[in-house]
C-alpha cells in the first residue's frame, strides 16, 4: 500500500538545539500509527514541521503524493491534513454548533461561498458529529465555557467536520478525566474505521497507544529511536531505557 504521509529525513533546530534530527516515518492510508517519546523528545516539533508551522532545516514531507514541506499551514490543511493542539484551541466566544459549522470544508474556491447561508446539511452533520462525541446536549453553549476534556472532544469533532484524509492528534487524552479516556479511544477507533480517517497520534499514555496504534515510532532527544509494532517497541531495550532514564 502507498504511504499517505511520507516524512523523509526531516531536521529542525531552534537556536542550535536540534529538536528533530533526520526523522523519517511513513503512514499508509487508513492506518492508525502512534508517536511516543519522553518529554522534550521533539514530538510536537515534528507535528509543527509536517503541517507547516515553521520552515524545515532539511528533509522533505509528502502528503497524498504532493510535496508539502514548503507550503503554509492553510494550504496543507486544505489538502486534507489537519492537526489538533495539545492545549485545546476552539473558538471560545462561539457556540459549539457554530464551531462545527465554521469548520465545514469549502473546497469550492471562490468568494461567493462566504455570502451563502450555512446549508441545512452542514448543520445536520454538525449536530450528528456533536452527538458522536457526546456533546449534543451542550451544542448551544459557548465553547469557551466547556471543560478542558469537553473542549478536546469538540476540537476532535471540528477536525472530523472538515472531512480530513488524515489527522495528527497531539495527546488527545492528556488532561482529560480518566473515565472519559476510554470514550475518547473508542471514538478515535470509530473515526478511523467508519469515516476512514488516517491517524497519527502523539500519546503519553502507553496503555492507550498500545491499544490504539498498529505501528509505533519512538523519539528521544530529537532522533527516531525505534519503530515497529507495539510489541516490538515495548520490548525494545532502548525504548525502556529512554523512558526510565529520561523521566
Amino acid at each position: 500500500m502507498n504511504a499517505l504521509l511520507e516524512v523523509d529525513r526531516v531536521s529542525k533546530s531552534f537556536g542550535g538545539v536540534a529538536a528533530n534530527r533526520e526523522i523519517s516515518l511513513s503512514v499508509p492510508a487508513g492506518a492508525v500509527h502512534g508517536l511516543i517519546g519522553p518529554n522534550g523528545s521533539g514530538k510536537t516539533t515534528l507535528f509543527n514541521s509536517i503541517v507547516g508551522h515553521h520552515p524545515l532545516d532539511a528533509g522533505s514531507v509528502a502528503f497524498d503524493g504532493t510535496r508539502i514541506e514548503r507550503m503554509t499551514v492553510p494550504r496543507i490543511a486544505r489538502l486534507g491534513l489537519l492537526r489538533t493542539f495539545q492545549q485545546t484551541r476552539v473558538y471560545g466566544a462561539m457556540s459549539c454548533v457554530e464551531n462545527m459549522q465554521v469548520s465545514a470544508p469549502h473546497r469550492t474556491a471562490h468568494g461567493g461561498v462566504l455570502l451563502r447561508r450555512v446549508p441545512a446539511a452542514v448543520t445536520e452533520r454538525a449536530e450528528g458529529l456533536l452527538e458522536f462525541v457526546g456533546l449534543a446536549a451542550l451544542r448551544h453553549h459557548r465553547a469557551g465555557s466547556l471543560s478542558f476534556g469537553q473542549q478536546k472532544l469538540l476540537e476532535f469533532a471540528m477536525a472530523l467536520m472538515f472531512r480530513p484524509k488524515m489527522l495528527l492528534l497531539d495527546e488527545p487524552t492528556a488532561g482529560i478525566n480518566p473515565t472519559l479516556i476510554n470514550g475518547m479511544i473508542d471514538r478515535l477507533v470509530r473515526a478511523n474505521a467508519e469515516l476512514g480517517v488516517t491517524l497519527l497520534v502523539i500519546e503519553h499514555n502507553m496503555r492507550v497507544v498500545m491499544n490504539l496504534a498498529t505501528h509505533i515510532y519512538c523519539l528521544a532527544h530529537g532522533r527516531l529511536l525505534a519503530a515497529g509494532t507495539p510489541e516490538e517497541v515495548r520490548n525494545d531495550p532502548r525504548v525502556v531505557e529512554a523512558y526510565l532514564g529520561g523521566e
Binding site: 492553510p74 476552539v90 466566544a93 469549502h106
Partner: peptide
C-alpha cells in the same frame, strides 16, 4: 452577512486565527 458563513468566519478569526488557519479556513479572503 453576520448570519451567513461570513459571520462565522470572521468570528472564528477573532477567537483564534491560528486555529482557523490550521483548519484551512479562507481567512485572508
Amino acid at each position: 452577512l453576520y448570519r451567513r458563513r461570513f459571520g462565522l468566519l470572521i468570528n472564528a478569526i477573532r477567537d483564534d486565527e491560528d486555529k482557523a488557519e490550521a483548519m484551512g479556513l479562507p481567512t485572508i479572503r
